[in-house]
Amino acid sequence: MRGAVAAQPRGNHRRGLSIQLAVNIAVLASIYALIGCGYVLIYRTSRVLNLAHGELMMVAAYLLLATASLFSGHPLAAFAASALLGLVVGAAVYLVLMRKMTGERVLAAVLATVALGILLRGIVVLVWSAQQQYPGQALGWSNPALALPGGARISAAAAALVLTTAAAYAGLFAFLRYTRWGIRMRAAGQNPLLAAQRGIRLHGVYALAWGLSTFTGGLAGMLIALDAGLEQTMVVIGLKAFPAALVGGLDSLVGAIAGALIVAAAEVLLIHYVNPLLADVVPFLVLIAMLLARPWGLFGTREELDRV
């Protein structure tokens, strides 16, 4: 393999590079968007900021390890089972813990999610130990790289992630627009009191929102774990996706996509052309700029500000 780094013609090389950068932006934006829609779903329906989202998504990814040994030889079945378990875990978290926090101060509810996060991290160490895990290996699935036109490349897991994000958003839009439960969820988010008076069971709707949020977050967690392995720092990735959701507007799914694209593009381009060290702060700098200029986000609803 040595010496194979053949020099490409310069112009061709530039075009290849820009396509690769576009692919990188798409992948990173998909990660942020798929994680971010979990924040949006919960915030939009129940006005709670879920800071345990990273932990919940990590738990779903770890559950993949468990289901992988349960359904050995059927990677897709294991994947689906783990995603559904994520849904159940999310709904259970609402019913057991967060239900009691409705009507409490904003900070108390946020802190409850933080406490939940600490608890979940402890449980994960307890069950799976702190070391690096590879769910891909447990599933018997290797992660080949796919060549794209223009010389760009993408790993299969990352490609799956982009497609899953697209499918998840399409599904969520359809769900919220056309299904009975989706309309209930929107109603509960817009005016809980009126919704309750019209006979919508708020707790059921909120539990569903938590379930769906953990489900989508879990999909992201599992795909990241398949791409790069799994350990405790996945929590921080969950937190890094949060600025993206906020830039777009915490109560807008379209906003989550737009925010993810903006933050991802800023991050990838700054890493490439300015300084890789900036990667850590860029999402938060974009966030500060947004909060000062348009606190409710690109697509958020303005009245939200006074309600919080």
Binding site: V110, F242, D280, V281, F284, L291, L292, P295, V308
Partner: peptide, 24 residues
């Protein structure tokens, strides 16, 4: 300064963002 415009959650988030800048 953000508190002049923001409240509650949004303010919390702006302080969080500033924390990351100081840390950096």
């Amino acid at each position: 300064l953000p508190s002049l415009r923001l409240r509650g959650l949004y303010l919390a988030v702006s302080t969080l963002a500033l924390y990351f800048v100081v840390h950096y």
